[in-house]
Amino acid sequence: MSRPSTPATLERMKGGFVYILANRPDGTLYVGVTSDLVRRIWEHREGLADGFTKRYGLKTLVHFERFDDIASAIQREKTMKHWPRAWKVRLIHAGNPQWRDLYDEILG
């Protein structure tokens, strides 16, 4: 499968993104940061990102946040990685109670 192109709306957005992946509703979670959300999620979905996400089949984008600069995104990711699991689940439920895969939404 070829790499997806980034929609013009996301391409114009400089800065960074914090995202949460899951393998199923209320399943295993992963918090990550990137400057190119479409590319990074595609890499996870295609199994190109070795490590934790590949090992546990984390391919469902359940939450993301956009930041004007990458430094703010990195700080938010570090903060969220230290949160208790319940706080992350609460954040997902607040914006995505059905744990829908948001990947199609970021594709435009």
Rank of each mutant, 00 (worst) to 15 (best):
D50W: 09
H93E: 15
W99R: 02
R40A: 01
M80E: 14
G15N: 10
V62I: 12
R45A: 12
R76M: 11
D36Y: 01
D68H: 08
W87H: 05
D104H: 12
R24Y: 04
K59F: 02
S72M: 10
L10T: 02
G16K: 09
R90Q: 12
N96H: 01
F64L: 13
T6H: 08
T9M: 01
P7D: 09
F64G: 13
E105R: 06
N96P: 09
D68K: 02
E65L: 00
G95F: 10
L48A: 07
L107N: 09
N96C: 09
A73E: 07
G57A: 11
R66S: 12
G15V: 13
Y30A: 08
F64R: 13
R40G: 04
E77P: 13
Y30L: 05
A86Y: 03
P7T: 09
I106L: 07
Y19D: 00
E43V: 04
G51A: 12
W87L: 15
Y103Q: 03
P84A: 10
V89I: 15
S72E: 13
I106H: 08
D26S: 12
W99T: 03
Y19P: 14
Q75C: 09
D101R: 05
F67N: 00
G16M: 05
G27L: 07
K14Y: 02
L61F: 05
T9P: 05
E105D: 15
Q75K: 15
E11T: 10
D68I: 01
E43D: 15
L37G: 09
R55N: 11
R24Q: 15
G15F: 10
I20R: 06
D36K: 15
S35R: 11
R40M: 00
S35W: 05
G32C: 09
P7N: 04
I70M: 06
I106W: 06
R100N: 14
L58A: 09
L48D: 08
P97N: 07
E43C: 07
R12N: 14
R39N: 13
R24S: 15
N23D: 15
S2E: 14
L58N: 07
D104V: 08
I106G: 13
Q75E: 15
I74A: 06
Y56P: 00
E46M: 11
W42G: 10
A49S: 11
N23R: 03
D36P: 07
S2Y: 02
R3I: 10
G57K: 10
L107H: 08
T9Y: 04
Q75D: 15
L37M: 08
R45L: 04
D26N: 14
E65C: 05
G27S: 10
P84L: 03
R40E: 09
V33Y: 00
P7W: 01
A73D: 04
R90C: 06
T6K: 11
H44G: 11
M1P: 13
K88Q: 07
Q98I: 02
I74E: 12
G27R: 01
L107G: 02
G27Y: 07
A94I: 06
P7Q: 08
V89G: 02
H82I: 01
R85V: 14
W99M: 06
L102V: 07
A8Q: 12
Q75M: 03
W83T: 02
T53W: 02
V18Y: 02
L58P: 13
T6A: 13
F17I: 03
V33S: 03
D36W: 00
R12W: 00
R90L: 03
